[in-house]
Amino acid sequence: MVALLPRLRRFASGLARDRADGDDLVQLTVERALDSRAQWQPGTRLDSWMMRIMRNIWIDEGRKKTRRAQTFVAEEAGIAVGGDGGQEAAAELGDVGRAMNRLPDDQREAVMLVLVEGYKYAEAAEIVGCPVGTLTSRLGRGREALLHMLGEAA
């Protein structure tokens, strides 16, 4: 599980809209996974299982987080800059981060799972808990929007 932490942080950094929220999400995921590790079936993929836990927590917490983020976003970004050892949150976010943050949650999740985490369509659909067709259509819309926003629509 320790070896998975960097990947969980990567996935969380895409789901949550800022890094501090992302690490909170990882922490909750780790706690939930440790508490319910008896439910994990050895022989199945630990990474998929943990990604599923993470996205479920993210969905559960989503509404709360978004409200909080809207209220405190400036302040939290300020704290994150110090906490990240001097990395500039704004610069770090960049065009890609901003474009991703503008995608609807379901599309962002599909893009992260397939294009960043490298899951096959079927695996990503299982993590999300939706039919493969739904996953690919979210993925397609997300990509179109990203290509458009990043100026590669031509």
């Binding site: 932490l5 960097p6 990567r10 780790v30 890609v96 960043v116 990203l146």
Partner: peptide, 22 residues
């Protein structure tokens, strides 16, 4: 582009508050 953007996280040290419980 997405890979380059998000993979930076992988190279960062994992904060202790995340690894300690594990």
């Amino acid at each position: 582009t997405l890979g380059t953007h998000f993979n930076r996280v992988l190279a960062e040290p994992v904060p202790e508050r995340l690894s300690a419980p594990v």
